[in-house]
Simulated assay, not measured.
Amino acid sequence: MSTAVEVVALHVSPVHAYEGRPADGPRPDPGPVSRDHVVVRAGLGLVGDRYFNHPAHRTAAVTVFAVEALEHVADGLGLSTVPGPLVVRRNVVLRGFDVDGLDRDAVFTLDTGDGPVRFRTHRPANPCGWMNAVIAPGAMRALRGRGGKRCVPLDDGLLRLGPATLTA
């Protein structure tokens, strides 16, 4: 089944900004983390990301997230604005598809215009206590079951911001 989606954010960071205690605040990122495109390598992840070719994360090197989860958080917590899509630190943020509804080991394809890139889901990307610090108190609980999926890329390719087709 093919679905028209939108890639609303792409995030690649060489370091983990949410380390230590949430009360101390996140580390500053060493450079731009928001991208207009990312290079995907089969079995390795996103070029330039901290989990690229990291043995412990081979089956979970890319995180995919639905921006609608942030809209749910904003509604549920009574926030005046929806948090920006990069605050959750997921690599690929989509609009228009229930990412959390994908089963473990499901294969889906994302095509942003440069050819299809297949991913295999591995496990949920569970939210952590940092969400309460960077979004609002209660955000971690509001994101339970809506934190996205950790995936392994099965193809080399390129993903871009904007309209895309997701086939699941």
Score class of each variant (00 low, 15 high):
P26N: 12
S80P: 00
L44I: 00
E6M: 09
G148I: 03
V117G: 01
G148Y: 05
P137W: 10
V87Y: 07
A133S: 06
G25Q: 12
G162I: 13
G101V: 12
A42G: 11
D105H: 06
F97S: 00
L44M: 11
V92M: 12
T81I: 02
S13C: 15
V40H: 06
V12L: 09
Y18K: 15
A66G: 14
D98F: 03
V38T: 00
G84T: 15
V107F: 05
A106W: 11
G162Y: 14
V152C: 13
R150D: 03
V39N: 13
S2Q: 11
H37S: 15
P163E: 15
F65A: 07
H54W: 00
V8G: 03
R58T: 10
A4G: 08
R27W: 09
N91D: 10
G31T: 04
V107H: 00
E68H: 12
V134H: 07
P22M: 06
C128K: 00
P22K: 09
T63A: 14
C128T: 07
R50L: 06
V92E: 10
A125G: 11
R160F: 08
P124S: 12
G147L: 04
I135S: 09
T81V: 11
R58H: 11
K149I: 11
P32I: 09
V82P: 08
V107M: 00
G78C: 08
R120T: 11
A133D: 05
P55T: 03
L86N: 11
N53L: 13
L158W: 15
L70S: 04
R89L: 00
P127Q: 06
P30H: 02
H57W: 13
